[in-house]
């Protein structure tokens, strides 16, 4: 009895702290998650800046980026979020500041093919984008 009482007394300030802090649970996905500004989430591209140099494709460790080249200026930059490791290497490798990681989650899906997105489409007559 003696020692267990001591243990309880020792931890009492902790109980008080936890009670004072209130609930920590986040209501995700019913409420938007609070992500830090620099959180590495979904990959986005400023298509106007992209030159199709494929430096991001070369350095991507997860082979999540793909460049389909049809001519000197005609290409498509395709992104596969199902492979992406959210490492941010593409952002670092791009010399034109075109690609970066935003602090948003990739949506969930049961069919991984639907995740694939065409980030840049520079084909002669681009058909409507996937999204």
């Amino acid at each position: 009895m003696g020692f267990s009482l001591r243990s309880i007394v020792y931890l009492l300030p902790q109980v008080w702290r936890v009670l004072r802090a209130g609930p920590l649970t986040v209501q995700f996905p019913f409420a938007p998650p609070e992500l830090q500004e620099g959180y590495r989430g979904q990959v986005v591209v400023d298509a106007a800046r992209c030159r199709g140099c494929s430096l991001c494709v070369r350095d991507c460790p997860a082979f999540a980026l793909e460049l389909e080249r049809e001519g000197r200026e005609e290409y498509r930059l395709i992104y596969h979020p199902d492979r992406c490791a959210y490492c941010g290497q593409c952002e670092l490798s791009c010399q034109f500041g075109a690609i970066r990681l935003s602090n948003t989650f990739t949506r969930a899906t049961a069919d991984r093919d639907t995740l694939t997105r065409v980030l840049v489409d520079r084909r002669p007559s681009p058909p409507p984008l996937d999204e």
Partner: peptide
């Protein structure tokens, strides 16, 4: 997470320094 953008995989090291 605030420093590096990731909780577990920080991806801050590059050969030649860090990137944050």
């Amino acid at each position: 997470e605030d420093l590096s953008g990731g909780r577990v995989s920080h991806a801050v090291n590059i050969v030649g320094g860090v990137r944050f």
